[in-house]
Design a protein around this nucleic acid. Structure first.
Length: 467
RNA sequence: GGCCCCUUCGUCUAAGGGUUAGGACGCGGCCCUUUCACGGCUGAAAUACGGGUUCGAAUCCCGUAGGGGUCACCA
C-alpha cells in the first residue's frame, strides 16, 4: 500500500511550490490507490500560526486536494519523539551532548576561520556524561557513521551518494527536551506508515541524516522522490517579490482551480505532448518518472492562457456564481435574481472573451449599467456627428421591428448598411459604443438581444439626443 | 567555501545512439470577422562550452562555465 504525506509548516500561506508538492503527493497516492496524509509541522511554536494553518487548508481545498485520515499535528507528538531519542541513547546510537550554544558558536567560528567545513566535532561523542557538571542541560545527538558512504536511490534524482564523513552528529532532542525537525519527521513518517517521501529537493541533503536515524532505529526505509524547486520568472528562487504568493492570491486574480491544477501539473512534469489534462487523466497518468530533474520557472502568461481554456470549458452557471462577487463589487450593489439570469444568458458569448474571472466580470458590466451610460474615451471619440446621424437611422429602423431576434435585427442593420453604402463595421461600432459604452463587446446582435428592445432603443436614443 | 543536484527555442516540455530536434505558452505574419476574443494556417526561435567513446551523440564518459540547493539546540 502506497502512503504519501504532505507536511507543510504553518508559517505562511500555501505557496506555489508547496501546492505542487501537495499535488504530486496526492496524485501519486491516488494513482496507486494508496493513502495521502496531511501533517502540520508546527513544532516551531514561535512561527506557527492558526491563520497559516487555515490558509494552507483553504488553499488545499481550493485546489481540490483531499486527504485521508485525521490531520496530524506534529506538536502533539513531542512526547513520542522524545521517547525515541531516549531509546536511541539507551541503545548506544545516540548520546548526550553538554556543549553550550556559545561553545558551539565559537567552534563554528574557528572552523570558518580555518576554512574547514562547519560541523559538530563530536566533542561529547565518547565522553562519559559524568564528566559534565551536575544538572547541566544537554542535547541528544545521533551517533552517526564515520566511514564509508550512503547512497539513496531517489525516484527523481537517481542514485545520490554522500560520504558519511559529511554527516555530523546532529541534534535529535534539544536541551529543553523538545524534538528537532529531523527527529520529528522521521518518527512521524514512520508512525504514519509513509512509504514514499515526495518533497522539494531542498530536503535532499536532509534525507541522508534522516536515513541514518531510520537505520539506527531499525525501521523500514521509505522511498524518496525529491522534486526540483520552482523558480520565479527571472530564474531566481521563488519569493514574495515575484508576486508568487499563496494560491489564494491566484484565486483572487480570478484563476480557476482546475487551471492552476493543470498548470502546476505540467510544471516539472510531462506526458508526451499533452497540455490540457483533466484530473481523472492526471491520476491515471501521473508517475514520478515523468518528473524532470531541473528547476522550472513560474510563467504567469501560460497560466492565464490555460485559465482561458478552462473558462471556455466551464459551465455557465458555475461562472455566474464565481463572477458574481466581482460584478457586485464593481457595481457597488447586489445582483438580483433577474440580473443573474441575464448573466447566465450572456455567459456563452462572454466567457470565450475572458482569460480570468475579473475580465469576465468587467465584460459583463454593460448588461447591468443604468441609463444613460457613461462612455469610455474611445467610445466617446467614435461617436462623432456622422456616427450619431447613423444611429438615428438605426434607431428608426429598429423601432418598427416586432421580431426582436438575432436574425431579424441583423437583417435590419444590414439593410441600412447597404442603403447607406457602408460596411457593417461602420454601423456596428457606433452601436457598440452607444449600447455598451465601450469599443469592444460580444457580437453586436448578441448585445441587442441580451439588452432587449426597450433598453437597446433607449441606449441608442441617449446618444442621439446628445447631438 | 565544503558537499549535493541541475543545464534542449525567451518559458514549460518531447525525443533515452540514427528525427528536417516535435508540441505548448509568448512573439510576428496571414485567414476568419461588426469590435474584442476564440479558432485555423504560418514564421522566427534551442541541444551552455570543450574534449572524448562510436560508423553515428541532445542522448554515454570526462572537464569547464553557469544556475540551484544545503551546511542551526529553524522547519
Amino acid at each position: 500500500m502506497v502512503v504519501t504525506r504532505f507536511a507543510p509548516s504553518p508559517t505562511g500561506f500555501l505557496h506555489i511550490g508547496g501546492a505542487r508538492t501537495a499535488m504530486f503527493n496526492w496524485l501519486f497516492a491516488r494513482h496507486h490507490g494508496g493513502k495521502a496524509l496531511l501533517r502540520i509541522e508546527d513544532t516551531d511554536k514561535a512561527r506557527s500560526t492558526q491563520e497559516a494553518i487555515d490558509a494552507i487548508s483553504e488553499g488545499l481545498d481550493w485546489l481540490g486536494l483531499d486527504w485521508d485520515g485525521e490531520t496530524v499535528f506534529q506538536s502533539e507528538r513531542a512526547a513520542r519523539h522524545a521517547k525515541v531519542a531516549h531509546e536511541l541513547v539507551a541503545s548506544g546510537n545516540a548520546y548526550k551532548c553538554f556543549a553550550t550554544s556559545e561553545e558551539l558558536t565559537e567552534m563554528r567560528e574557528q572552523q570558518r576561520a580555518e576554512k574547514k567545513p562547519m560541523r559538530y566535532d563530536g566533542r561529547w561523542r565518547d565522553r562519559d556524561p559524568s564528566e559534565a557538571p551536575d544538572g547541566a542541560p544537554f542535547a541528544i545527538r545521533l551517533k552517526t557513521e564515520m566511514a564509508g558512504k550512503v547512497t539513496i536511490s531517489d525516484m527523481v534524482q537517481g542514485d545520490v551518494s554522500v560520504q558519511n564523513s559529511e554527516i555530523d552528529d546532529f541534534i535529535l532532542l534539544r536541551s529543553d527536551g523538545t524534538p528537532t525537525y529531523m527527529l520529528a519527521v522521521v518518527v512521524d513518517d514512520h508512525d504514519m506508515g509513509v512509504t514514499h517521501l515526495i518533497r522539494g529537493d531542498d530536503h535532499l541533503n536532509n534525507a541522508f541524516r534522516q536515513l541514518a536515524l531510520i537505520r539506527a532505529m531499525g525501521w523500514p526505509e521509505p522511498l524518496y522522490a525529491h522534486i526540483p524547486l520552482i523558480h520565479g520568472n527571472d530564474g531566481a528562487k521563488l519569493s514574495k517579490r515575484h508576486g508568487a504568493l499563496g494560491v489564494e492570491a491566484y484565486r483572487d486574480m480570478g484563476i480557476l482551480p482546475d487551471a492552476m491544477f493543470n498548470y502546476l501539473l505540467r510544471l516539472g512534469w510531462g506526458h508526451g505532448d499533452d497540455e490540457i489534462i483533466s484530473r481523472a487523466q492526471a491520476i491515471e497518468w501521473f508517475d514520478l518518472s515523468g518528473v524532470g530533474k531541473s528547476p522550472s520557472r513560474f510563467d504567469t502568461k501560460k497560466l492565464q492562457n490555460l485559465n482561458g481554456h478552462y473558462m471556455r470549458d466551464a459551465a455557465d452557471n458555475d461562472l455566474v456564481r464565481l463572477a458574481t462577487p466581482w460584478i457586485e463589487q464593481d457595481l457597488g450593489q447586489a445582483l438580483t435574481a433577474a440580473n443573474k439570469e441575464l448573466l447566465g444568458q450572456a455567459m456563452p458569448v462572454l466567457k470565450s472573451r475572458a482569460k480570468n474571472l475579473i475580465e469576465l466580470a468587467e465584460s459583463s458590466l454593460f448588461l447591468f449599467k443604468k441609463r444613460p451610460l457613461g462612455l469610455d474615451e474611445r467610445a466617446e471619440n467614435l461617436l462623432d456627428d456622422p456616427a450619431r446621424t447613423l444611429l438615428k437611422s438605426i434607431h428608426l429602423g429598429l423601432t418598427d421591428l416586432e421580431d426582436w431576434t438575432l436574425e431579424a435585427t441583423e437583417e435590419v442593420i444590414k439593410a441600412i448598411a447597404e442603403s447607406a453604402e457602408l460596411g457593417l463595421g461602420k454601423l456596428a461600432q457606433p452601436m457598440r459604443a452607444a449600447l455598451t459604452g465601450s469599443t469592444s463587446s460580444p457580437g453586436i446582435f448578441d448585445v441587442l438581444i441580451l439588452l432587449g428592445k426597450e433598453e437597446s432603443l433607449g441606449r441608442l436614443a441617449d446618444q442621439i439626443e446628445k447631438t
